[in-house]
């Protein structure tokens, strides 16, 4: 095998694996994006994803329904989100502090539920089956990539396009962004900031839960303790990188998908380099990415600020 063919096989592998690896980050980041544009910084995404990992797996094991698995995983994370909302929106506590607490709770719950349900036996599940479109899926090179992914990926893509349209082309999106810029103005204009912030947090929680469930069900096929390994935080970083634009979020997530597949694939080609250095890659890439964006983007002006009425 010459160098070029190795390179070709390698890049095909990366490209083909990319969407699957990108999906959980994209799901969580899309939710976080909406959260942040309503002015809520949700650092609890990591915990919400973790809760989604175990709930998704457990529901799938007990019901056998992928639909229920993703739905209930999403809803379980919504519960954590409502807790975050109660503390930060209603009680107006610091969002960084509350987000950290949510992360802890989700983290602990995921391991606790797994141990309580399955003791130490390892549960393995099959991923969501890929779709198959006659002819199209069989197209050489691009067929599988474009027309042979699993339905969750297409649904996420649709959600991304929908959210982008909602945020920037509808009144509801404008109202939500107003809440993130200046809740007082929103209120004066007849938009209820509390309502919008709760709605955003519910959506953000749901998407994080979906992302977590996808990680156990479709990527790993089993549960591992703390298996998101910072993916939730990377999702938060991606939102900054994407400057609150869902289409940039998609590109960023795909890039991360590529990073994950890249190091998983290249490990076997370069056994002389300790695998730990490849494992570090996503975190280092995250730092470089947000360094690149820095503070140049316009963040929602009321991000991470509780809405406190005077008088």
């Amino acid at each position: 095998m010459n160098f070029l063919s190795v390179l070709f096989i390698f890049s095909m592998a990366v490209i083909l694996g990319m969407p699957v690896r990108a999906a959980p980050i994209f799901a969580a980041a899309l939710g976080e994006n909406v959260d942040q544009q309503a002015g809520t910084l949700n650092l609890g995404v990591e915990g919400m994803m973790l809760l989604g990992t175990i709930v998704g797996l457990a529901v799938l094991v007990y019901t056998g329904s992928y639909l229920l698995a993703f739905l209930i995983a999403g809803l379980s994370a919504v519960l954590l989100g409502l807790f975050h909302g109660l503390v930060t929106i209603t009680l107006k506590a610091d969002q960084v502090v509350s987000g950290t607490a949510i992360w802890f709770i989700g983290w602990g719950l995921s391991g606790y539920i797994y141990t309580a349900l399955f003791k130490t036996t390892e549960i393995v599940v099959k991923p969501v089956p890929d779709i198959y479109i006659p002819y199209l899926t069989n197209l050489p090179y691009i067929g599988k990539f474009l027309f042979g992914e699993d339905p969750v990926i297409y649904l996420l893509l649709i959600a991304g396009i929908g959210i982008n349209f909602f945020l920037y082309h509808t009144k509801g999106g404008l109202n939500l962004r107003t809440v993130g810029e200046d809740p007082l103005v929103a209120e004066i204009m007849g938009v209820n900031p509390t309502l919008y912030r709760y709605a955003a947090i519910i959506f953000g929680g749901f998407m994080a839960g979906i992302g977590g469930a996808y990680l156990t069900i479709s990527i790993v096929g089993a549960f591992e303790f703390d298996m998101t390994a910072g993916m939730g935080f990377i999702a938060v970083a991606l939102v900054y990188f994407a400057k609150w634009k869902p289409y940039r979020l998609l590109l960023g997530s795909l890039a991360f998908g590529a990073v994950y597949v890249f190091y998983l694939t290249i490990e076997s080609y370069l056994p002389s380099i300790p695998y730990q250095f490849f494992e570090m890659l996503p975190y280092i890439v995250t730092m470089v990415l947000i360094l690149y964006v820095g503070s140049r983007a316009h963040a929602p002006a009321a991000l991470a600020m509780p809405y406190i009425k005077e008088g």
Partner: peptide
């Protein structure tokens, strides 16, 4: 912002 008339878009 918060305008009711003129549709959703």
């Amino acid at each position: 912002i918060g305008l009711k008339d003129g549709g959703f878009i």
